[in-house]
Simulated scan of single mutants.
Amino acid sequence: MLPPLLLVTDRHGTDRPLAETVRAAVAGGARFVWLRDRDLDAELRRALARDLIAILAPVGGRLIVGGDPDLASEVGAQGVHLPGSAGIDGVRALREKLGAAALIGFSAHSVAEIAAAEAAGADYATLSPIFPSASKPGYGPALGLEALRAAGSVSRLPVFALGGIDAGNARACREAGAAGVAVMGGVMRSLDPRSETARFVAAIA
């Protein structure tokens, strides 16, 4: 079973080194981290991935690398998260490449994509945007909690609500059927990421 909080990294959103923010979030209870930061130089991203694995390892946490299976394999990450632009065929091809043991996530933006991702071999998906979100302005109107309910009716794939998630609405996402919530700005922009993460963990426990 996957941890119900998926922390999404954004070094532009934090006022400290990203590894420090993640370390604080892990101290607050984060156990599942998606290394996004796709614009980072390859060498720096590799070094950061290794740092995050070292932070997560003592608590049994998992690191997922966004869109780069070669990097994930090189650093020993637990899996890969594919963007929606990779398409469902991308999920299928990645499963064939990595085998059954790897964890594969997919960024879905509709209920239909959730069902397709499950059929293609994904282990989980994010569904976004659930609520209006400044960090995801280009993905159309908010889908709302009803989309989470609908996803649960067409698929057994674990779905993480993404987009506009805060400690106040996270529980509602779980009650609507989400396996968990994916959070970026709510923790990355916090002045106290440890305490903010703990609030999320408590809200979705």
Rank of each mutant, 00 (worst) to 15 (best):
V183F: 07
G84C: 06
G67F: 09
P129G: 02
G152L: 04
R11K: 08
L6P: 02
I104P: 00
G185M: 01
L148W: 06
F32E: 06
G185K: 01
R45Y: 05
A205C: 09
L35V: 06
A176D: 04
L52H: 05
P3C: 09
F131E: 14
D89Y: 14
S133K: 00
A100M: 14
A42L: 10
V154R: 13
L5I: 02
G29C: 04
E118S: 13
R62F: 03
A93E: 15
L48W: 01
K136V: 14
A108L: 09
A178L: 03
T126E: 06
A57G: 05
H12P: 10
A142F: 13
D51V: 12
A134Q: 07
V91L: 07
G84E: 07
S135I: 07
A49L: 10
R16G: 04
G28I: 09
A150T: 11
V80W: 00
F32K: 11
G186Y: 01
A203P: 01
M188N: 00
A27W: 07
V187E: 03
H109Q: 11
I55D: 08
F200G: 02
L103E: 09
S135E: 01
A54M: 10
E146Q: 13
L157Q: 05
V181T: 07
F131Y: 11
Y139M: 08
L18A: 04
P4E: 10
G28S: 04
G61R: 05
G29I: 10
A119P: 11
G28W: 12
A125G: 05
D192T: 15
T21P: 00
I204T: 02
I64Y: 01
A93Q: 15
S155H: 10
A172M: 15
R92D: 04
G140K: 12
A102V: 02
V65Q: 07
L103K: 05
R199Q: 13
R149K: 15
R156H: 08
L52W: 03
V111P: 12
A205K: 14
S73C: 15
G13W: 00
D39W: 08
V201Q: 04
I104C: 07
A178F: 12
G138M: 13
L40F: 10
A205S: 15
A119N: 08
G13A: 00
A202G: 06
I165W: 13
R171W: 15
G140Y: 05
L52T: 10
A179K: 11
L48T: 12
R92A: 13
F131V: 02
G90D: 05
L71H: 05
G87Q: 03
L52C: 02
G144A: 09
